[in-house]
Simulated assay, not measured.
Amino acid sequence: MRIGYTLMTEQRGPRDLVADAIGAERAGFDFAVISDHYFPWLDEQGHAPNAWAVLGAAAQATSRLPLMTYVTCPTFRYHPVVVAQQAATVQLLSGGRFRLGLGSGENLNEHVVGRGWPPVAVRQEMLAEAVEIIRALFAGGYVTRSGRHFQVAGAKLWDLPDPPPPIGVAVSGPVSCALAGRLADLAIAVEPERELLAAFEAAGGAGKPAVGQLPVCFDPDREAAVARAHQQFRWFGGGWKVNAELPGTAGFAAAGRFVRPEDVAETVPCGDRVDDFVAAVRPYLDAGFDELALIQVGGDSQPAFLHWAEQRLLPALRTL
Rank of each mutant, 00 (worst) to 15 (best):
V82R: 12
W158K: 15
V281N: 02
H47N: 15
G141Y: 03
G212F: 02
G181Q: 14
T144F: 14
W41H: 06
F31R: 01
M8Q: 11
A53T: 12
G168H: 10
W117D: 11
A128V: 14
V297H: 02
Q85R: 12
I3C: 04
F236M: 04
L186P: 03
G271M: 09
A187Q: 04
G204I: 13
P49A: 05
G181Y: 11
T69W: 02
H79A: 14
T144I: 10
T69R: 05
G4I: 02
T267I: 15
E195I: 12
F31Y: 10
A206F: 13
A203H: 13
D276K: 11
A155Q: 07
G248H: 15
S104W: 00
Q151P: 03
M1L: 09
A58P: 04
P261T: 03
A255L: 15
R318C: 05
E191F: 12
A51G: 09
P66G: 03
H79R: 13
L137G: 03
V18E: 02
R12I: 04
H230K: 09
R2I: 04
G181N: 12
R273Q: 15
T72A: 14
E201F: 10
L55F: 05
E193T: 09
E291P: 06
I134V: 12
R257M: 07
R273V: 15
V169K: 01
L67E: 01
V112R: 08
A51F: 01
Q11D: 06
W52I: 02
V242S: 10
Y142S: 15
E10I: 14
V171F: 00
A265K: 04
G4C: 01
G288F: 05
I34P: 00
V120T: 13
M1H: 08
Y78K: 09
L7Y: 02
A84Y: 03
L292M: 05
A304R: 11
Q311R: 13
A32F: 01
F200T: 03
P215K: 00
F138Q: 06
G288R: 03
V171M: 02
K208N: 10
D36I: 00
Q231V: 12
G205P: 08
P315Q: 06
A254E: 13
E266D: 11
G239A: 12
L92R: 13
P74T: 10
L317T: 03
Q86M: 13
M68E: 08
F98W: 04
F236Q: 01
M8T: 10
D276V: 07
Q11M: 14
R99N: 09
H230Y: 09
T9G: 08
F29N: 00
G181V: 11
G101T: 05
M68R: 07
V175Y: 05
A224C: 07
P164Q: 10
Y70M: 10
A19W: 00
P215E: 00
R12D: 07
G207A: 08
A27L: 01
V113D: 11
A199R: 11
A309L: 05
L42Q: 11
